[in-house]
């Protein structure tokens, strides 16, 4: 899932300073799952904003909605009519969601309430960890299912640097050296030979990436002679 966290309140308040009618839109998928942008947070942020602005003597009208996904236009359309009544939309989705709405409702300002952090998994209650960098060239088969691209501070693919100490990363003592984990896993799986092979440098992705799956699309009308 995409892991995101809510921006500092001051920053959000500042973004909204010129708007008096704002619709906060939560997203019911990833950011709900990572406990940051779902229905409950929408309700809290709305109340906080109303109070902050009242205290400043500059009242704001805040609408609250949560849709299942902000990365699909069909879901975004569910709030089309409502959105038209506001000066701005404050999206509590990842960056994809913010842009999804902005793209769909071109004439209304869409503002991000969240900082999108990474593609991650749960690492115990209230904790998430980055595990995939979406590099577009998966090598997990040779690293025992542990990604050094996402989980090594230097994204090294030929083994560790010399900086790890006591099995911990030189960058943060909170992180294990991922290569230690890869090594242990490869030993367990009897696949250590993968580590001994030189991995060629990765092809770097070119932004923006786009995936068109012609095989999934309705064929264009056949032309003559084919």
């Amino acid at each position: 899932m995409i892991v995101a966290e809510i921006k500092p309140f001051g920053e959000i308040k500042d973004m909204l300073k010129d708007y008096n009618k704002v619709l906060i839109v939560g997203c019911g998928t990833c950011v709900t799952v990572c406990l940051s942008g779902g229905e409950r947070q929408v309700e809290l942020l709305a109340s906080a904003l109303r109070m902050a602005r009242k205290i400043e003597g500059n009242e704001i009208t805040v609408g609250e909605r949560t849709i299942l996904r902000q990365c699909d236009p069909e879901f975004i359309d569910q709030i089309k009519d409502e959105a038209a009544q506001y000066d701005a939309i404050l999206s509590m989705a990842c960056g994809a969601g913010v842009q999804g709405i902005a793209e769909r409702f071109g004439s209304i300002t869409v503002l991000p309430a969240m900082n999108t952090r990474f593609i991650g998994v749960s690492d115990g209650q209230g904790t998430w960890v980055e595990v995939c960098a979406a590099c577009g060239d998966c090598i997990l088969y040779k690293t025992g299912g542990i990604c050094p691209v996402a989980r090594c501070a230097k994204s090294l693919i030929n083994g560790p640097c010399g900086g790890s100490q006591g099995g911990l990363c030189e960058v943060s003592k909170d992180n294990p050296c991922v290569w230690q984990q890869i090594y242990a896993r490869l030993v367990k799986l009897n696949l250590l030979h993968f580590l001994k092979e030189i991995s060629p440098p990765k092809t770097r992705p070119v932004h923006p990436r786009r995936l068109v799956r012609e095989d999934l699309r309705l064929k264009k009308e056949q032309t003559k002679g084919v």
């Binding site: 779902g38 229905e39 409950r40």
Partner: peptide, 12 residues
């Protein structure tokens, strides 16, 4: 106890 409800992010 209701703890789950107080923490459910979807208010579900």
């Amino acid at each position: 106890c209701g703890i789950c409800a107080s923490e459910c992010p979807a208010s579900a």
